[in-house]
Each structure stands twice: as C-alpha cells, then as structure tokens.
Design a protein around this nucleic acid. Sequence first.
DNA 1: ATCCAATTGCAACTAAAACTCAATAGCAAC
DNA 2: GTTGCTATTGAGTTTTAGTTGCAATTGGAT
Lengths: 141, 141
Amino acid sequence: MRIEEDKLRDYLKSKGLKFTPERQLILKEVFSIHRHFEVDDLFIRMRRRDNRISRSTLYRTLRLLVECGLLREVLFEERHSHYEHILGHEHHDHLLCLGCGQVIEFSNSSIEKLQSKVCGEYKFQPQGHRLQITGYCRKCR
Amino acid sequence: MRIEEDKLRDYLKSKGLKFTPERQLILKEVFSIHRHFEVDDLFIRMRRRDNRISRSTLYRTLRLLVECGLLREVLFEERHSHYEHILGHEHHDHLLCLGCGQVIEFSNSSIEKLQSKVCGEYKFQPQGHRLQITGYCRKCR
DNA sequence: ATCCAATTGCAACTAAAACTCAATAGCAAC
DNA sequence: GTTGCTATTGAGTTTTAGTTGCAATTGGAT
C-alpha cells in the first residue's frame, strides 16, 4: 500500500520492533498533514478523530519516524520541536517570517555546494544541515 | 570604559531600565568567557567567584543582552539555549561535531551572498540567519 | 496456540525557563 | 541629600516539553 508504511514496517522489522495499531494510526495522521507540525498539533488532531493515543506514544513514535528517515525535525524560533515530511520532498531550507510566522521553503543547490566546500576545508564530514533565515515576508515588511 | 558596558547602559537608558550591580557583574562574567556558553555555565562560574546571582536574574539579563545586540542565541542539538558574543566577532556559522561535541566556527561570504539572493527572489527581508552543519570532525570520522 | 520481548498508558519525574510577589534599590526630581 | 516612584531582585512556585518506570497487554516468530 503506501510507501511510508512499507518503509516503517521494514525499519521496525530490521530492529526487531513491532508494527502496532498505534504506530499505524500515527503514521497515517502524520502523512495526512501537509505542512510543518508540532507534537501537540498531532495530539489534538488524533483526539478529534477519537484516536486516543497517549502523548508518550506520540513522542516515542515520532522519534522512530525520524530514525527511519520518514520525518525530519526542524527547529524554529520556539523551544519545542517541529517536524516535516522527508519522503517525497526534496531537501530544502526555510525562510521564517517573524511577523506572521509563515514558513517559506526554498532550496538552492549553489548554497549546498558551497557548504560542501567549507566542510572540505575543515576536513569535516557533513551528515546534515539546517539553514534558517529569519526576517519579514513580503506582506509583513 | 568597556564598549559592551556602554552599549548595555545606552540600551537600558533608552528603555527606562536600570543599570544594576547584578547586571554589571553578569555582563563582566559573560565577556570573560571566550566561547559558547549556556546559562548554567554562567551560573556556576559566578558562584565560584561568590557572586550570588539568582538564576531568575541570569535568565532575565541574558534576554536583555540578546535584545541589545551584545549576545546571540545559538541552537545546538540540545534543547536548551547556548549563547555567544556578537560584539567584536564577525558573523559566522557552525560546524557541529556529533562525535565529540566540538563546535567549529566558519564564515563564508559567498554563502551569505546567495542567501541574500534567495531572499530577493521571495521579496523576503532578512533579519538574521542560522546555518549549522552537523557531522563528524577530522578526529571523529 | 504458545510464549516472550516489545509496547502501551498512566503517573511520576526532570530540566529549562518563565512567572509571582514582597522586599529592595536605582535614579530623576526636587 | 532626601523623597518617591518604578524597576529589580531572589526565592519559590508554575509551566512547558519531553522522558522514564512500571504493570498490564499484545504482536508476531516459532
């Protein structure tokens, strides 16, 4: 059926973990959101659908989804985690509007190339990066 | 006397706030640290010197120092804040080693230029940015 | 069908940071 | 220098975000 479910099943199996109904429900809900979300967003959405999953399970499952490469954690100006899909989305970075909170995604391969070059200079082996530009969007400035 | 003290005094005066002995001590301690630090580092250092400043005051004062442009908050992989000096340091970004936790600073004006270009494309007025590359340093890879 | 390790939900816990409030102290005006 | 108003402080309490321990439950390999 869905690619993301296969990916999760494979990951779980490879680690000797179980594919539970809770994990399936969370996965489904996560992939029905098509923008950035935080844990509490997810919790409330699931409650509305009467899927009474505990917060502990949400936290534990989100960690799994990050580990298996389905989700990415993104840090905005707030002190708690935000997540976004990786599957089917090319890598991108964010413009974060301090006025309206809007998040604009962008990607720029020249910047990525320069980053590789910098890493080379420091003999640093990159594993990932975050680039976030804060400021004001067209409407807010 | 010191530029940073003048800057803080000016900022406080402009906001109708007061230059207290506590704020002076914190400022002094902050500028005696020449690397990234977190709130508790600062707290412990001050205790060692018998400057018994409460954590509340530290938190409140650090916020002021960020507001007046003396400090910058940097987010590493941990969930609490780290700070670094702005004054007298040109803007830079970070390579963060997941092995030993080492933080390498770098700056690259070509990346900055490309960022400006991206902002232009989105009619986004940048105010600041964070670029953090995680991976493994020469020793750890 | 059996069995064992993984999972769940709940409650208790933790860490970082923010808030509350009574006592104190800058500092501007006199 | 004194006064008075407002900002500030520290101690303790609260909030927020997330983690952990544990007893009961369950997935899934055999």
